[in-house]
Design a protein around this nucleic acid. Structure first.
Length: 209
DNA sequence: TGCCAGGCCCTCTTTAGGGCCTT
């Protein structure tokens, strides 16, 4: 099975919220899903080249001392680009991780061909009754076993992957059908909520025909 | 000391404003 049949679920820890304001990645974690099973993982701290704030140290548990020993983004992102291959990508609030992925890859002139899907946008449509749609809340809401500590990249990527698979299982049960395609999920995340029932009905018709 | 981004989505909307979500 080549990587085009895989989904890579990724998560960045960063120095802040915006790469356009000088923020950099300090850790990347990712898992590779094939047919609902985690078959590989990637985790690496990244030295951003400057000291991170006390807030980020407290938020992530990643310290300046840890980052002083970490390799540069140049080395890590080449490895991660090889890990991704041409797989499709999933992240929680994907627009955030996509901005940092694009910025860090641009620095080393690497590119990716996979498409992004967002577990948060899909979860807002599938679990409208959740109290909120933070990753930790959705993990608890769906009684998913917590993996490691929130706000570390690999643990968040693993929990996002388990949430993503739980969403696929929820949709399979709703339609009594096979696993939805990545393209279907990418379309679902853009559907207006008022159009969801029509969207689901159309998808079910296409599967049965 | 306080603030800094950007996309989505809802509503008391669309010539706008503000909350959510990510670090």
């Amino acid at each position: 099975m080549n990587s085009a049949n895989s989904v890579v679920v990724l998560d960045f820890e960063t120095t802040g919220l915006s790469p356009t304001q000088g923020d950099r990645a300090i850790e990347i974690g990712a898992v590779k899903l094939q047919q609902g099973v985690i078959v590989d993982h990637f985790q690496q701290l990244i030295n951003p080249g400057f000291r991170i704030t006390h807030f980020i140290e407290q938020y992530t548990g990643i310290t300046n001392a840890m980052l002083n020993e970490a390799p540069s983004s140049h080395i890590v992102m080449h490895d991660f680009a090889d890990f991704m291959g041409d797989a499709n990508l999933v992240a929680h609030n994907a627009s955030f991780d996509q901005r940092f992925l694009d910025a860090e890859l641009a620095r080393i002139h690497r590119h990716y061909s996979g498409r992004f899907a967002c577990s948060m946008l899909v979860a807002r449509r599938i679990y409208p009754d959740a109290s909120n749609h933070q990753l930790s809340t959705l993990v608890a809401h769906n009684r998913i076993e917590q993996q490691g500590d929130f706000h570390r990249a690999l643990a968040d990527a693993e929990m996002t992957a388990l949430l993503w698979q739980h969403i696929l299982d929820t949709l399979c049960q709703r339609w009594q059908c096979q696993a939805p395609s990545f393209a279907m999920m990418a379309a679902l995340q853009k559907q207006p909520k008022a159009n969801l029932e029509r969207f689901f009905a159309k998808y079910a018709d296409n599967q049965s025909s």
